[in-house]
Design a protein around this nucleic acid. Structure first.
Lengths: 187, 187
DNA sequence: TCTATTATTTGTCATATGACAAATAATCAG
DNA sequence: CTGATTATTTGTCATATGACAAATAATAGA
């Protein structure tokens, strides 16, 4: 779990002893391509840490799927709305390729947070970073054209050309066809 | 500072002694209608707590203003991107009416966070709540029509009909004229 | 209260993007 | 390798919303 170890060290700013205290609470889980880590209609009761692969978070509305986020190694996530409220999640989490994630239950996480300052800091920074990133997204929706939003994501996310268009376009907030045309123009 | 006291008690789940420890670190600031709490081009080095009134956060692009958020009594905010990175903020903060806010500098806030578990909890919950709310916004941008976004905001925000349209429409992600027409249809 | 300023509504027309469908292209399972 | 499935591109047309401007309406300062 090299990637996670580095990321946890980086986020917490802590030494290896403190980091190991955290790591030993995490349970590994391997996912085949297409496997679900969590389905809409259940309650998010775990935090997830990605070691390898990629996980897509999406919700369904009508007949369509909308991608909320795509996570890559080193990233930490959950459906925070469900996790905090205890209500049913509307989010599905699906492995886009063979992946390895580590998980911790809410119970364990809460306990660890009271004991470990390093862990506490990781969770806080994770939400802070997520908030700042999401803010940029909202700004882009408010004041950018579709092609500008595409550019922005393309510059920041290495997965933009790696996974099927249909997963990407809803993240950018446009249809597949439009994304295809935007991409065609850029060549 | 009744409103803030209640909110801080609620968020921290702490007793009055712990709450008072926090309150005594806050400095009051009164704003006339139209006054700026902070301007784009400066660094966000404070957290703000609203006791009374309303504060609008917006950025400028081209000749236009885009409202990012409108805060009302009990709410806690800053431009987190600038606050965390130390880089220049693109956000302006303007009082929509005569307001009273309490402020704390980053230095004091950081120190208080190490000393007071209650304060730490407040900051964490504030970001968590903000993140969840922002997520709902993004989902609305992805999968709702303009009129649906309007409805959603109208149901959640009591300020929707209280302040000028021009401040509201960019928050919803549409033009003033479109918002005016949407509103006309609803009657 | 009156006038000037600012905000909102409404009209007309333009345009970015969506909807739907068909044609290619790429990928995958046997 | 090959056919079947899935993904992408491309065409045509529809539509929600924007752009701009003018007409009202509301608000605020003297």
């Amino acid at each position: 779990m090299e990637v996670l170890k580095n990321e946890i060290r980086r986020l917490s700013g802590s030494n290896d002893a403190a980091v190991d205290e955290i790591l030993k609470e995490l349970t590994p889980k391997n996912l085949k391509k297409g496997a679900f880590l969590q389905r809409a209609g259940t309650i998010s009761q775990r935090y997830y840490f990605i070691e390898k692969g990629a996980v897509r978070l999406f919700y369904e509305k009508g007949m369509e799927e909308f991608t909320v986020w795509i996570g890559t190694p080193g990233q930490i996530f959950t459906d925070l709305e469900s996790y905090l409220s205890g209500q049913l999640s509307r989010i599905n989490m699906e492995a886009l390729e063979a992946s390895q994630v580590y998980t911790i239950t809410k119970d364990k996480s809460d306990k660890l947070a009271t004991q470990s300052n390093a862990y506490n800091t990781i969770l806080r920074r994770t939400v802070e970073i997520a908030f700042v990133n999401l803010s940029k997204n909202v700004i882009s929706f408010q004041s950018d054209q579709a092609s500008e939003r595409y550019e922005r994501v393309a510059n920041e996310k290495d997965w933009l050309s790696k996974y099927p268009l249909k997963y990407i376009s809803s993240f950018i907030g446009i249809t597949q066809s439009s994304l295809s045309r935007i991409r065609a123009k850029k060549d």
